[in-house]
Amino acid sequence: MDSWRKNPLVFWVLNLSPSAWLIAFFIVPLALVWVLSFGEKRGLLDVAITGTLDNYARALQPLYLEIFWKSIWMAAAATLVCLIAGYPVAFAIAFAPNRWKPYLLLALMVPFWINILIRTYALIAVFRTRGYVNFTLEWIWDQAHSLLAFLGLGGYELIGARFVPLELLYNNFAVSLGIVYAFFPFMVLPLYANIEKLDRSYMEASLDLGAGHWRTFFSVVFPLTWHGALSGVIIVFIPALGAFFIPDLLGGTDSQLIGNVIERQFKAANDWPFGAALSFLLMYATFGALALRAIVAGRKQGLEV
């Protein structure tokens, strides 16, 4: 690697256009939002920058705290489901014969290449009142109904007079499920990377010494791979908080993520300073999570040396 002084002309020619683009069309817009977050809304599009912290204080009002709490809860539930479902899949890929691995990883990645919006839309067809889950349930109900009639119990309406479809869409459950479906591969990949690196003799030792598979997992595998789990949790949880289109398509009136609140401030409610403050709070949370991951990764390296 050369010092830039050795060849300033080449350095500047290569550097100039990407840097200019990054500054003009990324850093400046972000800085603008940061400045806006300290402003007050005066007119329709008029914002006076007064250095006020009111926008941040407003985020702490009970109304918004309640929304954030629910939002965090939905995203956290989804992240937990991803983690629980992700470990077996990561395990299966890591322990698969080498010739299968690329195909299994590919199979995991392909749905992920598909537009996240389209994947969310695909869930509607599965879960709506006249969707596949309810069709399956109706079929089971029909079978049970004829069985009861056959047994002579048809008159008692033990399972209701008619099949009542489950309302699976337009609630918080659907939103959590949508998040799981959208971000699942994000969880599996860091888990896989960590399980793959794991020294298997530890597991063999644990199994040889009489621990069962569960005990081996919780006492050996998880303590050795939890930083992979942490990476996965961070890269599922944080984007999930901002994914405003998932509640828009799958959620009910009261299911909103932080992204929905931000989106509303910039579009319908037209309160840019408050939206700016919220989006910077989300950014600070992201930075905090990334710093945490870096610290954990650094400490782990320190231990290995």
Partner: peptide, 13 residues
């Protein structure tokens, strides 16, 4: 950074 943060930044800009 979350996509929505970049989205609103570009919109405001």
């Amino acid at each position: 950074i979350p996509e929505i943060c970049m989205g609103v930044a570009m919109m405001a800009f």
